[in-house]
């Protein structure tokens, strides 16, 4: 019996600090994946063209879209990984319960997502610099104000965070029953296939549009946070019935 009264929030903070310091592998994988995304983007991410009489034009697009998509996947996988036993048992070195462990995980994933969002912006400029050096001259840019850049960084972080919440729920489902690791990819690929059967990806398009059509950052925050918290909530409820470490 201890005479020291333990505050849950203090434990969450301690665990969060511990995770920031010890989960460095998460950040080294971020670097490798970002470099890979830059490499994949070097050939351009799109092309279009047209003509009017004797005038014709060709436009090559270079964007950081692929870097962001890779980071979203990275967030998804990272969240799955930190739900594994090895990571969960790390928390037992603190006086803890499942809820504090979940909260510190969520805080860690928020921080990692925002960091990833910032690096998406910075690495897209590394990518632009490389394309410049590779003699792709006369690059035109859509001028973004500092405020739009700040909003973009937060937006990128939010999209990554959304994927961490999905990953966290998927991770918990897999921890609950390993069969999910086989069923979930089948269900996902099957749903994508069925959705795209009529050459019109209706459901996935509508889901994407729900977030991508939002021009107000405050509303995007509300949308993404509410959906993410729903996924995290399910994950926390699921974990309540899981076995405890002996």
């Amino acid at each position: 019996m201890s005479l020291v009264e333990v505050n849950s929030w203090d434990i969450v903070k301690k665990q969060y600090r511990y995770k920031l310091k010890s989960y460095l592998g998460v950040f080294s994988s971020l670097i490798i994946i970002q470099v890979l995304a830059i490499f994949f983007s070097l050939n351009g991410t799109g092309m279009s063209g047209g003509s009017s009489g004797t005038f014709s034009y060709k436009v090559n697009y270079y964007s950081g879209d692929l870097i962001l998509v890779f980071m979203m996947l990275w967030g998804f996988i990272t969240a799955i990984i930190i739900t594994t036993k090895a990571y969960r048992y790390d928390d037992t070195s603190f006086v803890t319960n499942r809820l504090t462990s979940h909260f510190s995980n969520i805080l860690f994933l928020i921080s990692a997502s925002l960091f990833a969002g910032l690096t998406v912006f910075l690495s897209s400029h590394l990518f632009r610099l490389i394309t410049n050096i590779m003699n792709v001259d006369s690059i035109m840019v859509n001028e973004h104000t500092p405020l739009q850049i700040a909003k973009g960084i937060i937006g990128a972080g939010l999209y990554i965070f959304l994927f961490t919440s999905i990953g966290y729920l998927v991770g918990m489902l897999i921890q609950k029953n390993k069969l999910f690791s086989f069923f979930l990819p089948i269900v996902l690929v099957g749903a994508m296939y069925l959705d795209g059967m009529n050459n019109d990806v209706l459901i996935f398009h509508s889901i994407s549009l729900y977030f991508l059509s939002e021009t107000l950052l405050s509303l995007l925050i509300i949308k993404i946070m509410s959906v993410s918290l729903l996924f995290y909530g399910f994950a926390i409820i699921l974990s309540a019935r899981m076995e405890v470490r002996a």
Binding site: G44, V59, Y61, Y62, S63, G117, V136, I139
Partner: peptide
């Protein structure tokens, strides 16, 4: 021929 660059859809 011209090239367009952007940081990504979130931006």
């Amino acid at each position: 021929t011209f090239n367009k660059f952007t940081e990504g859809f979130a931006f």
